[in-house]
């Protein structure tokens, strides 16, 4: 499964080997371009629609009929979340903290373990590699896991966010495959020069593995930012530890559990029209806040992930 990227370097890939376009070619091209454009629209529209709702006046939104642009512009939905609601503001901070610290820890752990597993002379390699890989296909189940966390004192503890997902077998396999591709002579030469393993890892292997380290870093950061179930399971009774995705999940679930979200929106505003936020307007604004960091990371991510995925798919 060799990946050749050279063909996609130019603006238009190599000219086709036939000269004249037949009717079939034209029909097929039209069909494909239409389908792909449709895919783009279907992918992007819901985000734009959510964006429009999040900037539209909440009371006005109840009337419906908002598509790509807000009808009555307002920043109140965001203001309400970021300034008026300490819980949600807190949740955003927590999500950011766990993404940064959890991400850093995870990258460090993955780097160390991958390096050791990539060393063919490591004497426990044949035992420890399957030990780790097996965790990809197997889980003890949430109830035993939960009880264990309770016994370890990790309930309502920020550490649970950092430790539980610290080492992912898949990420180790991806990074290890990359390191396997580095010439063995580098490590050997360094050893002859008397360098310690730490020196070899951080001074030689790490600088050469930057593309894969960046990929894994971005993946784990996105994973941390996106995760909500661990908050619900382990930290739901401690508001100080709440996360953005969990708060958003709570809104979604409550919206689903009442018969009509519109009725709820209307009820919330019936008494005091100055309140002017509804569960829907808050939800859309929070959705946008949850997506925006991904959009910032995304360009960096895309540069690397195709390569990372292909390596993992072939060798992992």
């Amino acid at each position: 499964m060799a990946v050749k990227t050279s063909a996609s370097r130019g603006l238009v890939s190599k000219l086709p080997f036939y000269r004249r376009a037949t009717t079939e070619d034209i029909v097929l091209d039209v069909f494909i371009y239409v389908c792909l454009l449709l895919l783009c629209v279907v992918t992007i529209y819901p985000f734009l629609n959510t964006l429009a709702y999040s900037f539209n006046d909440a009371t006005d939104s109840i009337r419906g009929g908002i598509y790509l642009l807000p009808r009555e512009w307002t920043l109140r939905n965001y203001e309400k979340i970021l300034v008026g609601n300490p819980l949600i503001a807190r949740s955003i901070v927590n999500s950011a903290i766990r993404a940064i610290i959890g991400g850093a820890l995870s990258v460090f752990a993955t780097l160390c373990v991958s390096y050791v597993f990539s060393r063919k002379d490591f004497f426990l390699r044949k035992v420890l590699t399957p030990f780790l890989v097996f965790t990809m296909y197997f889980s003890g189940g949430i109830i035993p896991q939960f009880l264990l966390m309770r016994n370890l004192g990790l309930i309502n503890n920020f550490l649970v966010y950092l430790l539980l997902t610290m080492l992912s077998a898949y990420n180790v396999m991806v990074m290890r495959s990359y390191m396997d591709g580095l010439p063995d002579s580098l490590v050997e030469a360094a050893k002859i020069d008397g360098a310690s393993e730490y020196r070899i890892l951080f001074g030689i292997v790490l600088p050469l593995s930057m593309p894969v380290v960046a990929t894994i870093a971005l993946f784990v950061i996105v994973g941390q930012w996106n995760s909500w179930f661990d908050t619900m399971l382990y930290c739901s009774s401690e508001p100080k530890l709440t996360t953005l995705q969990y708060e958003l999940q709570k809104l979604l679930t409550s919206a689903q559990n009442i018969a009509s979200a519109d009725a709820a929106d209307a009820a919330m505003n019936s008494g005091d029209s100055k309140a002017a936020v509804t569960p829907t307007s808050i939800r859309t604004a929070m959705t946008i806040i949850a997506v925006v960091p991904i959009l910032f990371i995304y360009p960096f991510l895309q540069k690397y992930f195709v390569k990372g995925l292909t390596i993992g798919g072939v060798k992992g």
Partner: peptide, 22 residues
């Protein structure tokens, strides 16, 4: 097209479910 089509993969299921719901 590729850039756009990868995007939903990176948003959380919470966000995606909100979108489905809307």
């Amino acid at each position: 097209v590729q850039t756009i089509s990868y995007l939903p993969y990176f948003v959380s299921w919470v966000v995606a479910s909100n979108i489905v719901y809307m």
